[in-house]
Simulated scan of single mutants.
Amino acid sequence: MMNQNIRLIFQTIIFLLFTAILQAQTNNLIYLWPDKVPNERMEKQLPVQTDNTSGNVTRITDVTNPALVVFKPEKSNNSGVGILICPGGGYNILAIDKEGYEIAEWLNKLGYTAFVLQYRVPNKQLGALNDIQRAIRVVRNNAKKYNLDAEKIGLIGFSAGGSLCARASTRFTIDSYPKTDAIDQLSCKPNFSMLIYPAYLDKGKDRSITPELVLSNNIPPFFIFGTADDPYGNSSLVFTQALRDNGTPIELHLLPKGGHGYGIRPGNIAAETWPNLAKKWLLER
């Protein structure tokens, strides 16, 4: 009984903190779809926080009203770069703090404006693609508002979020939803893409590149980081090989250990390594 009470108290604290974060971010929230959400049968509602807080991770699901949470740096680096963040979660949930808000705070410290994408889950991969294409256009449309260069809008994604970034970075010539307004006339092509322990990129025959990922001669440059002991590690290797064969600028880093889902939290060699490499790569862009 005591353990159950402690767990209930802990979950209540986490929920209150999560609610406080959402309330604090209300003024920095951009809903992607002013009217009907394409390919969505559910009514718009707030996302649901799951009961699973293992690993001290806040997970949300039942996203039906996709949005961007804006994180502006206290001191901009004046690069004009804006970065959309796609948390992972197997297209079932979003690890919204570990692979979203915490990444945004790191980017803010580097002077970048960041946008955490709350894309549709669970099991709505087409909807997720709709959302990221729209999100890129929305950020591009608001570039002046956030002192950004409309041609310096990039992506960073983790696990399934890495899959989503790869899809957006290879399928930008194919509209996944009907155009509805002037924003949809803008390009949904990202200017660069960073994939951190990406998953689901090797769904082709004999674990080859996922057929959905269409490679052309104007794919944006990629930064990819993974580890050899990651159960999804083949995704990084297969996708990198395909990009290399395509002549796309690509930088791959593969550590022997680190596993999967480590985010940017200390205590994991991979989590402590990729940020500095990504920081350098961004500066070189």
Rank of each mutant, 00 (worst) to 15 (best):
I14N: 01
G259C: 05
L148W: 04
D184H: 13
L186P: 08
G55M: 12
V63S: 00
Y31P: 13
G100E: 01
G100Q: 01
L46C: 11
L252F: 02
I96Q: 00
L254V: 10
K257H: 10
N65E: 03
K152M: 06
S76P: 07
V48S: 08
K98M: 04
N92R: 14
Q45H: 14
G157A: 06
K279L: 12
I83Y: 01
A104N: 05
T240M: 09
L126E: 12
T113L: 05
I174R: 11
P38H: 02
A182Y: 04
G258T: 01
T50G: 13
L29G: 12
N217Q: 15
D97Y: 02
T58I: 06
L255H: 03
Q241F: 11
D51I: 08
G204M: 04
C165I: 08
N246G: 15
I30H: 12
F158V: 05
T173R: 00
K205Y: 13
K36I: 04
T170L: 10
A278S: 12
D175G: 15
W274R: 13
C188V: 15
K124S: 05
D245Y: 04
V63T: 08
T180W: 07
I9V: 15
L155V: 10
L84M: 05
I21E: 00
T227L: 08
I93L: 12
D245V: 05
N142Q: 06
D202S: 09
T53H: 05
L164R: 00
N27C: 15
I21Q: 11
P34L: 12
F192M: 06
L254D: 03
I132M: 09
I83V: 14
I30D: 02
Q185D: 10
L29P: 07
R285T: 00
P249G: 13
K205M: 12
A20W: 13
P221C: 00
K203L: 15
S159F: 06
V121Q: 00
I156V: 11
S169L: 07
T19I: 11
R167C: 11
G162I: 01
G80H: 11
L94P: 00
A199T: 07
Q45L: 15
P211C: 09
I6D: 05
P87G: 01
I264M: 13
L255V: 13
E251L: 14
W106E: 05
A135K: 08
Y31A: 13
R265L: 09
G89F: 01
L277D: 03
I196M: 07
F172T: 07
V214Y: 01
G247P: 02
F222C: 04
P34E: 06
T240C: 14
A278I: 06
V69Q: 06
E212L: 08
G247M: 02
N191A: 10
S169E: 04
I224F: 02
L46P: 07
Q185Y: 02
Q118R: 10
L32P: 07
V69K: 03
I219P: 00
Y101D: 01
L94V: 14
S216W: 08
V48G: 10
P190M: 08
L94F: 11
G154N: 05
G267P: 14
S169K: 10
S163C: 09
Y91H: 14
I21F: 04
L8M: 10
G267V: 02
I93Q: 03
N39P: 14
G55D: 03
L195H: 08
R140G: 02
R41Y: 03
K75W: 01
